[in-house]
Design a protein around this nucleic acid. Sequence first.
DNA 1: TCTTGAACCTCAAGTGGCTACAGATCGTAT
DNA 2: ATACGATCTGTAGCCACTTGAGGTTCAAGA
Lengths: 147, 147
Amino acid sequence: MMDAKNIERVMPIGSLSDRTGVKVETIRYYEQVGLLPQPERSGGNQRRYGRAHVERLAFIKHARDLGFPVDGIRALLRLSDNPGMACDEAHAISVAHLDDVRHKIARLRSLEKELERIAATCSGGVTACDCAIIEALADHSQCRKEH
Amino acid sequence: MMDAKNIERVMPIGSLSDRTGVKVETIRYYEQVGLLPQPERSGGNQRRYGRAHVERLAFIKHARDLGFPVDGIRALLRLSDNPGMACDEAHAISVAHLDDVRHKIARLRSLEKELERIAATCSGGVTACDCAIIEALADHSQCRKEH
DNA sequence: TCTTGAACCTCAAGTGGCTACAGATCGTAT
DNA sequence: ATACGATCTGTAGCCACTTGAGGTTCAAGA
């Protein structure tokens, strides 16, 4: 490979993928939906990336790993492109996302409790019963609380 | 309405929807993917449901509310249709799902921590800075642990 | 009996965030 | 010159629905 030397301006998509851990198809998808700018092309129409693309894609990947939706990332990228009045809105986006994550956690914890209860009603191995798990699913009123 | 009296065998899809809390479109979708059996039709080709459908759909809704995937529900329904050797498999499906839920919780908790940290770096209101939130997203190495 | 108008019908496409495939072209090492 | 992997475009698929268009049926009121 020639990755180490010629990283500037001539990186093909596979190298960008290797460096960021984002799959080739996903990179093209991000370009298509406007998260990544269109790169220059080689004579044979292949994408060629530079350092700026690596940084932007790393930003995107990090935000996706943190669960930000693509729309939120688009907004964050816009803010990072013209700094200045960025803080307020970036903070709002992050807090909204944190809120969302906490709601999901709360909901999953309540599901966890209910599933524990249901799974415990029947430990398997019972052969001739009308399975308690299936009955529990059929009868919502057995549940401790709403979900 | 005539819901109260004529629930047996003549319920139209809207009443089934009202009774179960499952949207009309979703009911048709469940029929299409084979979760709900095809009901009888009126002279004018409209679906007519009876008590058995209400029960089956309630089962499906409850399981969906608990986060079971449609394939898991299909398996559970098959088990509930021919009881007997149901317990073992039902238990396995539930435990696998519980496991999945716990993994999701663990992942979200770690995201929550990281987001708290990032959101705290900048409380908004700062006007002239290169926003710390955006910097944190750009620089993964600031994170406490992998995600 | 006729007329509304809500409820119902089918079929197709859109959602998010990719992933996978098919079939063609490019780039480079030998 | 050739072989082979990397890349290209475009399309379809994934899950579990949701939305929309454009048409039909049903039940209640005049």
